[in-house]
Design a protein around this nucleic acid. Sequence first.
DNA 1: AATGAATGAGCATTCATTCAT
DNA 2: AATGAATGAATGCTCATTCAT
Lengths: 179, 179, 179, 179
Amino acid sequence: MYDTILNMSKKIAIENGLNSINMRLIAKNCDIALGSIYNYFPSKSDLLIATIQSIWQDIFNLNSNSFNSEIFIDNIIYIFETINKNLQKYPDFFTLHSLSFNNENKHKGKKSMDIFLNNIKVHLTNILENDKNVRNNVFNEYLTPTIFVDYIFNLLISLIFDKKDNCKSLIKLIENSIY
Amino acid sequence: MYDTILNMSKKIAIENGLNSINMRLIAKNCDIALGSIYNYFPSKSDLLIATIQSIWQDIFNLNSNSFNSEIFIDNIIYIFETINKNLQKYPDFFTLHSLSFNNENKHKGKKSMDIFLNNIKVHLTNILENDKNVRNNVFNEYLTPTIFVDYIFNLLISLIFDKKDNCKSLIKLIENSIY
Amino acid sequence: MYDTILNMSKKIAIENGLNSINMRLIAKNCDIALGSIYNYFPSKSDLLIATIQSIWQDIFNLNSNSFNSEIFIDNIIYIFETINKNLQKYPDFFTLHSLSFNNENKHKGKKSMDIFLNNIKVHLTNILENDKNVRNNVFNEYLTPTIFVDYIFNLLISLIFDKKDNCKSLIKLIENSIY
Amino acid sequence: MYDTILNMSKKIAIENGLNSINMRLIAKNCDIALGSIYNYFPSKSDLLIATIQSIWQDIFNLNSNSFNSEIFIDNIIYIFETINKNLQKYPDFFTLHSLSFNNENKHKGKKSMDIFLNNIKVHLTNILENDKNVRNNVFNEYLTPTIFVDYIFNLLISLIFDKKDNCKSLIKLIENSIY
DNA sequence: AATGAATGAGCATTCATTCAT
DNA sequence: AATGAATGAATGCTCATTCAT
């Protein structure tokens, strides 16, 4: 039941945007009583947080085991392709304009999300730091490996959102930057 | 009157977030009648679009004349600093969690915004293409100057949102990438 | 419109008790839109307070001018009869089990009510203190005229609530006590 | 189990008011299943009635044996002091704004309550009627001993609700009235 | 152009009660 | 007897929009 509700919430979010999620609609589409939702999610806010997290999990379904290369650039390609593959489950994903939390839920939701994404970033940073192909003098006190990974991750997400089918331009940028 | 309404809308948006904009509140704070707003903005949606555009304009208040250097990197620094300066008018800007449009308004609003930002990007691209310090083989069929500018712009905005007080890490990235 | 709503609220309160007041029912019975109520009463709580106060006012519609006797006992009779007369407007008054405010509204509502009732009590106390028929040694440090008036008022209300058609027993008690 | 539920209901009623009693909360605080309550109390209404009666019983825990004086006034003092002592178990008693029943339960609940209180009143009336210190001509066809006891009882309750620590003013009133 | 009262669909949330296990 | 998930009517409140004046 928990999953039924959550999946319906995800479905609605993806098809019509987060703002169109409302408890009545979910109940109706799940063919359950309105009150039943509250047995599993104490408030709409909680359901929203669970929904967003679940969508992110679906899309960023990468476990550390998957990073099978010691070459930074290969991992980026792997991530891009995995995400794109995962996104096939979400053909309407891009009407989902904003996966960010609103002000109230920011504190509750943001934290667990950041931890989740951070694991990937830390892993990437480790690989980058041990990548022997990186040329000298690429990093300094301002542009650290951590910040560089942040930047690349940021651009990667943009590519995804822009529905690019490859990340070759980003790869070229990385090559220019560090190899 | 148009401006009175628009400015109040901006004020509310910046202080409390886009979602807290509502017609009644604006009318009340402007000391005008609720119905009067509709003489200037046919719907809330239109007011929202105008509000967001105006905020962006305030923040990206760069006219092409301002780009006084032929060095790409100098223009980036100039943009970063100008935006940061403009932002001093908006001390609560960052409670404005999302400046994006919702589903309905997406089509209406996104377009004019893109045109606006595009002017800056085109200008930057021109400068980049004529920057003689750029090393060879930096661009290819995937990573074009246009796309590169997109990327840098993207990262620039991130720095702003993250309240960074300088863009030295981004400059270093650019140097690594193209000089 | 304000009065339409208030009167309907009073009607419902008197016929079915305070707890059966709800915004939808009032709107429906008034043949107006639910939202319209909120143009006049910002919240149910405010409507409730206004309702209770208005009922009390209707029932205790005594102005100081009406106290035309210098004899304490005559005023008590006058008050009893006036209230009973006013109550004819409220044949179902006694299903209104409790006219007290709930915890939340207590502070807001109780104050103005107390001021209202207090005026009558102060007036009665004045008359009592100047009533020359009162025998000696009736009051002491514990039983002051103010407290005595409180007591008598209290019993008067009980008589009203018990639908007594006269207050002769109370008069006898007063006579025993002070004359 | 019956008592566990009843006591929890009393606890909640006294700490937060009758209106905050709800079946879920009681079940949770008793660490039993929601449905189990219904094995002992067929409806919330029944639980409410039992709760109110039990609170009254706790407070008016006077058995006839306790009336050990033949002097009416001594019994009043005894009742006042006993009630005040019993109330020490209920430090938050006075947030319990109304111990009366709502419309539906009125008929069911009021009756048994009245019988309970009536026993005390009858007893007091007996004592009053046999109190040889009572002066002549105190009672007549309107003010009977029964009604007088009603009055005094009424005022006694008021003193309790007003958190008075003694009933000396009431005693003085009684002395004035009948001795 | 200006006004602002009226509208009413829409929303989150509560909670007594039922009933299959 | 005990359980607790499921129910769904009920409720207070919001707010974009309309329209007669």
